[in-house]
Amino acid sequence: MVAVRRATAPLLLAGALLLTGCSGDVPAAPPPPPPSSSSSSSSSSSSAPVATPTSASSSPSPSAPPVAAKVVVLDPGHNGGNAAHPAEINRLVPSGRGQTKPCNTTGTATNAGYPEHAFTFDVARRIGEALAAKGIRVVYTRQNDTGVGPCVDRRAAIGNEAGANAVVSIHADGSTAAGANGFHVAYSSPPLNAAQGAPSLRLAQTLRDTMRSGGFSVSNYIGGGGLSARSDLGGLNLSTRPAALVECGNMRNPAEAARMTSAEGRQSYASAIAAAIEAYLAG
């Protein structure tokens, strides 16, 4: 979820956009474990910026498709430990265009309490598993759902350092407007570099088109035609790689909340987004 429409609880209570942590190269590591019906991780965190990026890679076979050996950074929004560390996530960091914004936020939740951070983490793992099976190297901005951050600037840096062919952030909205539903895809506009121009717009359009053809309705309350040009999202502003952010739907809408809460529903989001990323890489 991003800043403009998040119904976020005060950070001093137990429970928008992107990207903390340490600097340095993105390490290669085995992929996260396969997703289950639960989106939480067994990893734990004992200090503030603990979410180190992990990656999944596999060697393409001689007959591997054209997308093999490409690099994709998946950025699951927020983190499970954010609410318990208000000082860390309220810390101001660069957000591009000469502005600053809080390091991160807690995200939103369904009316029944299923949190955005859990949804995004589970969907990102499912996407990553599908992409890795095609020989695509997958890098994650966080490796568990119990840590803090990373901050928006660090999330962008992870994609830049990885030399990503595509960076996709996964979020969900929390609008309380009556009847608000549907997904939208945000991209940085006006662009600040070449990657934020035609490449990012094509990535956003491919995500939009593939999700729409997969049966998902475009947002009826934000953006236009499933796309939203944004100048205020730090993770997009600071990216030097093609990047887009998917708001999968409105967690406060009962029908969309039911889909997001179920493992089958999360798989449907992941399958559509993975297919879109593959299509973009092959283009």
Rank of each mutant, 00 (worst) to 15 (best):
R142F: 04
E264N: 15
G174N: 01
L203P: 09
I127K: 00
L18Y: 06
P27D: 06
P49I: 00
R241P: 07
S95Q: 10
Q99I: 07
T20A: 07
S189R: 06
G113H: 12
A258C: 07
V123L: 05
S45G: 15
V167P: 02
S42P: 10
A51Y: 03
G163A: 10
A9W: 04
A84V: 14
E161G: 12
L192I: 08
I170W: 01
P76Q: 11
K134L: 10
H171C: 01
A178V: 13
V139N: 06
I277N: 07
V148F: 03
G249V: 04
A229H: 03
G107V: 01
V123A: 00
A29Y: 14
S200C: 10
D145C: 09
G182L: 09
G98E: 11
Q196F: 04
S38H: 13
G179R: 05
C248Y: 02
M1P: 05
F121N: 03
S37V: 14
V4L: 10
R212M: 04
D145P: 12
G113Q: 03
Q99T: 11
L207D: 03
T210H: 07
D232I: 01
G214D: 14
A48M: 07
A275T: 14
S217M: 08
Y280E: 09
A3P: 04
T110F: 00
I89G: 00
G265P: 02
D25M: 12
A164V: 04
R125T: 03
A274C: 09
L12H: 12
S188R: 01
F183T: 02
T54A: 15
L131V: 07
G15Q: 13
Y221K: 06
L192T: 06
G224L: 09
T20L: 08
P62T: 08
E278P: 01
H85G: 00
P31H: 11
S63C: 08
N79H: 11
V218G: 03
Y140D: 01
R259S: 09
S38T: 13
L207C: 02
S57W: 10
P102H: 00
G149K: 00
S228N: 11
P76D: 05
S41P: 09
Q205A: 12
P65I: 07
I158C: 05
I89Y: 06
D75Y: 03
D122T: 08
S175N: 07
A194R: 08
L74M: 05
D173H: 05
R5E: 09
A3G: 11
P76F: 00
P199T: 04
A282K: 11
G283W: 07
T52S: 14
V152E: 03
I222M: 04
L236Y: 06
N250K: 06
A130W: 02
N82I: 01
P94H: 05
S213N: 14
N220W: 10
A177Q: 11
T108R: 02
E264Q: 15
H184L: 08
T210P: 04
T261L: 09
S23T: 13
Y221D: 02
L13F: 11
S219C: 13
S61R: 14
S36F: 13
Y280W: 14
C22V: 11
G249M: 12
S63W: 14
P254M: 06
A130F: 05
A243D: 01
S40I: 08
G197T: 02
A69K: 15
G214M: 07
G147F: 03
P34Q: 12
Y114L: 04
A3Y: 05
A282R: 13
P32D: 13
A255R: 13
Q99Y: 09
A164P: 05
E161A: 08
E247G: 00
N181E: 15
L203I: 04
G81Y: 03
